Every structure is written in structure tokens, then in C-alpha cells.
Simulated scan of single mutants.
Amino acid sequence: MKSIYILTLLSFFVIVINLSSCDQSIDNLYTEKSRIQFKYFKEDTVTQGQATVYRRTYFDRTTLSFGMSDDEVQEDTAKIVVEFLGDVSNKDRTYRVRINPDSTTAKEGVHYKPFSSTQTFRAGRRKDTLSIVVLRKDLGTSFINPVDYRLTLDMEATEDFNLGMKDGLYTHLYMNNYLVKPKWWDGVGSLMFYHPKKWKILISFNEKWANKEKEPFNFNNGGREYFEALRNYLEREPTFDDETGARIYIDRLVEQNN
């Protein structure tokens, strides 16, 4: 009986010591420098039956496209979100990014303006943005052979920050000058084949058509009047593909005789 009592007492002390060690490790988790990274996932709430769950989506890129921009717009700013693991600081800190030459196809001064490898993470924030000015002039406009230029960035440690999670230590910036087909297009049979000029005409009818993720009038056949208006417009107003010179109709491209 006495030996059982002693074993129980020893077990109690072991548990107390382990708990103390765990508490200490948690308390000291961010006593070192904060850990910097590119934002690489987002969380959304999704309703499943009567329950609401969180869904995490991972990504490793930002895309800046001039496809919807007016012709006079010759530059735009891409904003890449940067975050850290740790405590918010009451003073500005610096982080550093490096262009990865093996994965980069964009050219500095041609497709984007030069930017400093050393950036400021402003005080009082958990997230900040790395701003890169993208230049339109030399981005291809081809619909038939679309080209994306890529700028790949790697995060580097500094005096203010250690490195964060592995998947957040790099990111890609894609740049283009064409209108990528929206995700919902192929699911709308009345629109027939995709052409960026057809989509732009839809947007001119109603700006809600600019939604890239989902069709804005997909209930009660609400888009029917727009599809018919698009068909009539293309019949009435000659509209041509800039590369081939073919005339665009709702259901076909027609080559023009010289």
C-alpha cells in the first residue's frame, strides 16, 4: 500500500513538471523574432446542412491583368499581402524579398518597375502589402496565344524577422494584357464559344457581368435577355477579332475576304 502511495505521488510530480514545461514553451513561443511570410491561404465560412464550417483555400500567386482596363491605362499596381507570426510591433520593421531568377520570366523595367528588395512592415499591423508597379506596353494582347509573364519572389530573413511557414516563403506575380475566360462561361450554353470582346459587350450591358467567379444572373434564367441582346448586337454591329480580322458572331467566327 505504501509503495502504491509513493508511485502515485511521483506520478503527480511528473505531471506537474510536464505541465510547467508545456506552459513555458507556449509562453516562449514568440519571444524570439516574429516570423515573416507571404499570405498563402484564405478562410471562408461554408454552410453544410445546419452547421457552419471553415474552409481553407491555398494559393501561391497574384495576377494583375489589364484585360478589362481602358486602353489609356498603361500601368497598375499589384498588391501582394505579407503577414507574420508573432506579436504586433509599435515600430516599423523591415523585411526583404529576393527575385528568383530561375522562375522569373518578367523583365525589370519592361514588364514592371524596379522596386527595393528591402521593404517596410508598418507598425501596429498584422498584415501589410508589397506594392509592385506593372507596365502594360510590352504585355502581349494575343487571344489565340495568350502569354503570362511571371515574377517569382522569395522571402528572406532580416534583423527584424525570421522566416515563417514553408509554403509562405515564396509567391508568384503573373502579369497579362488579355481577358481570361471567366469560370462560369462554359456553363452558359447560350453564349457559345468564348471571345473577350463578347464578354466586354456583356459587361457594357451590366457591370455585374464582370464577376469572374460566378454568373450573376443564373437564377430563373435571368441572363436570357442579355444573351439575346448580345446576339442582336453582334448581328447589327460588325465586331472583329483583332488578330485574324474575323467577324465575331454569337456562335461563330467568320473570316473576311480581302
Rank of each mutant, 00 (worst) to 15 (best):
K2I: 11
S3E: 13
S3D: 09
Y5T: 13
L9M: 13
S11A: 15
S11C: 13
F13M: 12
V14H: 08
V16M: 15
N18F: 07
L19F: 09
Q24P: 00
I26A: 04
D27T: 06
L29V: 03
S34H: 02
Y40W: 15
T45Y: 12
T45S: 14
T47C: 05
T47V: 14
T52V: 11
Y54W: 11
R55W: 03
T57V: 08
T62S: 11
L64G: 07
S65L: 08
S65H: 11
G67N: 13
M68P: 10
S69W: 05
V73R: 15
Q74A: 05
K79I: 02
I80G: 04
V81N: 04
V82E: 04
F84E: 01
F84A: 01
G86F: 04
V88E: 09
V88Q: 10
K91D: 03
D92R: 10
R93P: 00
R98F: 04
N100M: 02
P101M: 02
D102V: 00
D102G: 03
S103H: 09
E108P: 01
V110T: 14
V110R: 14
K113F: 00
S117M: 04
Q119A: 06
F121K: 02
R122G: 00
K127H: 04
I132F: 03
T141S: 13
D148A: 01
D148W: 01
Y149G: 01
Y149T: 06
L151E: 08
T152M: 09
T152N: 13
L153R: 07
A157W: 03
T158I: 02
E159Q: 13
N162S: 11
N162D: 15
N162M: 01
L163P: 11
G164A: 03
L169Y: 02
Y170H: 13
T171R: 10
L179Q: 11
K181E: 15
K183N: 09
K183W: 01
K183M: 09
G189Q: 12
G189Y: 06
S190P: 00
H195G: 07
K197M: 07
W199A: 03
K200G: 01
S204E: 07
N211S: 12
E213N: 13
K214L: 08
N220Y: 11
N220W: 12
Y226M: 11
E228S: 10
A229C: 03
N232E: 12
Y233F: 14
Y233R: 14
L234C: 06
L234T: 05
T239L: 07
D242V: 05
R247W: 05
I250D: 05
D251L: 06
L253H: 04
Q256V: 13
N257F: 02
N257S: 12
